[in-house]
């Protein structure tokens, strides 16, 4: 167990280092730089531009910039966000909790709903309900995320103006509200993006889990369970579920990063000021330190996701425990 954590820790560090290098190279090879938008204006004196670039070391050769960046990173300094005029750490400190809140809500809800729907489908397999849920989940799973987000936004904040049009909190009154009202204000803003993500992922999980359960049901040990006198429901929820979860764990591990990238579009549509939105903005502004900062957080989440999946596997499958 300890050796697993150590080896995975080393692997993860290597992966993050590689990701940093590649994203550094990629974002620096994109045309323009952090001052391009504001300063490549012909009316701005080229001397001012050159001066600013020199000040931030952007006139130095790329390898030198890379070494400087890594050295700074090694000291735990993520750098300065040009576009936001704050440290990258402060920016991430603002946006990351919002994305994690959205992700965690959507992941937990879609897991519960997806597994629940699949269980209902399998317990009534071949019924009209099974068929309906099957088509509904296929429909949702094949829907582009941004399109579903736009439709939901249109339906529930415009046609039926029930929810806010975007943002994580009410921009005007939030700070003046008492604590409980702030909580409800946040919840109010969370519902639409979370529901959108949940619909998308729950449909995928439901389809996956239904297949996994149907793969388990014809196996011999299910017949043994029946021959003991167990109820069909107990068989499904106890004997079949635990085995079917093994396949689902893979999906959960894989969907960790997917939730993050998927959230980019959802955050954009719902103007949810999270990491996805921050990253899109940073790329547009060539805000090198913020882009790489976001990428680092993303890759750490991916690594954690797969580590979590590994640990869940060990918990769920005794055959893996002595490996």
């Amino acid at each position: 167990m300890l050796s697993l954590l150590v080896s995975r820790g080393l692997q993860s560090a290597l992966i993050v280092a590689l990701v940093v290098t590649f994203s550094f190279l990629l974002i620096h090879s994109a045309p323009g730089d952090p001052f391009a938008g504001a300063l490549d204006n012909p009316r701005v004196n080229p001397a001012i531009r050159a001066n600013l670039r020199a000040q931030y070391g952007l006139d130095r050769p790329l390898p030198e910039q890379y070494v400087k960046y890594v050295a700074q990173l090694a000291r735990g300094n993520l750098g300065w966000s040009f576009s936001r005029g704050r440290s990258v750490r402060a920016v991430l400190g603002d946006v990351l909790p919002r994305t994690l809140l959205l992700m965690a809500t959507a992941l937990v809800a879609s897991f519960l709903i997806g597994v629940g729907v699949a269980t209902v489908q399998v317990s009534r397999r071949g019924s009209a309900l099974d068929g309906f849920l099957d088509r509904a989940s296929l429909f949702l799973a094949s829907m582009p995320d941004f399109w579903l987000a736009i439709l939901i936004l249109l339906a529930f904040s415009y046609w039926i103006p029930f929810f806010s049009i975007g943002g994580a909190v009410d921009p005007v009154v939030h700070d003046m509200l008492p604590p409980y009202a702030r909580f409800f204000d946040s919840l109010w803003h969370l519902i639409l993006p979370a529901v959108t993500l949940t619909l998308l992922y729950a449909s995928g999980i439901a389809r996956f889990q239904r297949g996994a359960l149907l793969d388990v049901m014809p196996l011999d040990f299910i017949r043994t369970a029946r021959s003991k006198g167990l109820r069909e429901r107990q068989i499904l929820l106890h004997h079949a579920m635990r085995n079917a979860l093994l396949t689902l764990i893979t999906l959960i591990g894989l969907s960790f990063p997917a939730l993050l990238t998927g959230a980019v579009f959802i955050e954009k549509v719902f103007a949810w000021p999270g990491m996805g939105l921050a990253m899109v903005g940073a790329i547009g502004a060539r805000d090198y330190p913020l882009v790489i900062g976001c990428v680092i957080v993303g890759s750490v989440l991916v690594v954690l996701g797969s580590l979590l999946a590994d640990l869940l596997y060990r918990w769920a499958d005794p055959r893996l425990r002595q490996l």
């Binding site: 196996l219 011999d220 040990f221 017949r223 043994t224 369970a225 029946r226 021959s227 003991k228 006198g229 167990l230 109820r231 004997h239 635990r242 085995n243 093994l246 769920a316 499958d317 005794p318 055959r319």
Partner: peptide, 25 residues
């Protein structure tokens, strides 16, 4: 019939590996 299964009449199957659930002791 559930009251009979495993109680008054029980079964032993052919493949002892696959007849046991791999994830429970």
């Amino acid at each position: 019939i559930r009251g009979v299964r495993g109680n008054r009449i029980s079964m032993i199957f052919q493949e002892p590996m696959s007849a046991l659930n791999p994830v429970f002791n």
